[in-house]
Simulated scan of single mutants.
Amino acid sequence: MVTEERLASWTGPSSDAEQLKQDLTERMIREAIAAHAAFDGVNLSIYAKGSYANNTNVKFDSDVDIVVECREVEYWEDYDPSAGGHPAGSPYEGPWTPDRFRAEVKAALVNKFPNGSVTSGTTAFEVEATSSRVNADVVPCFTYRMYFANGSYQEGTKLFKTTGGSIVNYPKLQLERGRAKNTRTNGAYKKTVRILKRLENVLVDAGLSDEVPSYLMECLIYNCPDEYFTRATWRGTMQGCLADIYNYTNRSEPADEAERWLEANGAKFLFHGSQKWTREQVHAFANAAWDYMEFG
């Protein structure tokens, strides 16, 4: 049985040494973009996203994700095209196409991290770790807004894949809503996310589960009721969360949108046809975690 003491030891973030490496990695990427002449005078927003930014990373899962957002261009959609919501404006005719922006971000990184340290994926550039820094994914993207009929909007990013197509994310909303849930639960939300991530590491190492994406685990805990995080023990918290995850993924997606689980940004449905994960994958993981915890 996984004891209360062991669970408590799993609540902490990555080590101070790892934190120093993460901070150095972020700083070096910021320096690379700032030093690149092609970006002089360009409206860019550079910020961390994901587990590092949200303080839910754990040892051995301590990569850094850095967004390089071009705010010279706004991509947008209307939530209800028939109702409108986006204010009238002229199409963008400037130089910052997705291909050019991606090429300049790559050039900036290669100048800072030479000798093959930078490799290109379909969405992000990976900067290889050294003894003093961690692996980093650098994501070139553009400002994106989803407009509602009343003219309000939720802001995210739009990134373009080298293989075609695009992806909309909401990293700032993830940060804001994660902080709000953590405040409501007196800090227990993020501690529970770290417990689940460390539990997943144990299960994978033991051959009891396939790997589960770090972001997905944060999303699963995000959907668990706040009341679970006020229970007297970590075992009690985990029992409630794993039961909810198991039960939710043991049935089909609810027809009522209000009952569907969301990503940790609160803006996108957690399960749908184009996600990188499936309900069956999550259900199998929850089952393995429940058994390993010996909840009976």
Rank of each mutant, 00 (worst) to 15 (best):
M1H: 14
T3A: 12
R6S: 13
R6F: 15
A8H: 11
W10A: 11
W10C: 12
G12C: 06
P13F: 00
P13T: 03
L20N: 10
T25L: 01
T25D: 02
M28E: 06
M28L: 15
I29M: 06
I33D: 03
A34N: 09
A35M: 04
A35Q: 11
F39C: 06
D40Q: 13
L44P: 11
S45I: 08
S45A: 13
A48R: 15
K49F: 01
Y52A: 07
A53C: 09
N57Q: 10
N57T: 14
N57F: 09
V58P: 07
D61F: 04
V64N: 05
D65K: 00
E69I: 12
E72Y: 04
V73C: 02
Y75A: 02
D78Y: 06
Y79D: 01
S82H: 04
A83E: 07
G84L: 01
G85D: 00
P87F: 08
A88N: 07
P91A: 12
G94H: 13
P95R: 02
D99T: 11
R102H: 01
A103C: 03
A103K: 04
E104Q: 14
E104F: 07
A108P: 06
L109Q: 11
L109R: 08
L109V: 14
V110S: 04
N111L: 13
P114S: 02
S120I: 06
S120V: 14
E128W: 02
S131M: 13
S132D: 15
R133E: 04
D137M: 06
D137F: 08
C141E: 10
F142Q: 10
T143M: 10
R145W: 07
M146V: 08
F148I: 12
N150E: 13
N150I: 15
N150S: 10
N150D: 15
Q154C: 05
G156P: 03
G156C: 04
K158C: 03
K158Q: 08
F160V: 09
G164Q: 03
G165A: 01
Y170R: 09
Y170L: 07
P171T: 00
L173T: 01
L175N: 04
R179M: 07
R179Y: 02
K181A: 08
K181R: 15
N182R: 04
N182Y: 02
A188Y: 03
V193S: 02
K197D: 00
K197C: 08
R198C: 09
R198D: 05
L199R: 08
L199V: 15
N201Y: 07
V202E: 12
V204P: 11
A206C: 10
G207S: 07
L208R: 15
L208K: 15
L208T: 14
E211D: 14
S214P: 02
S214H: 11
M217N: 07
L220K: 09
I221P: 00
C224I: 04
Y228G: 00
F229A: 05
T233A: 03
T233Y: 01
W234Q: 12
G236D: 11
T237M: 13
L242S: 02
A243H: 11
N247C: 07
T249C: 06
T249E: 00
N250F: 00
E253D: 11
D256V: 12
E257T: 13
L262E: 03
E263Q: 13
A264N: 11
K268V: 12
F271A: 10
H272L: 05
R279Q: 09
V282S: 00
A284T: 06
A286Q: 00
W290A: 10
Y292D: 14
M293F: 08
M293R: 12
M293W: 05
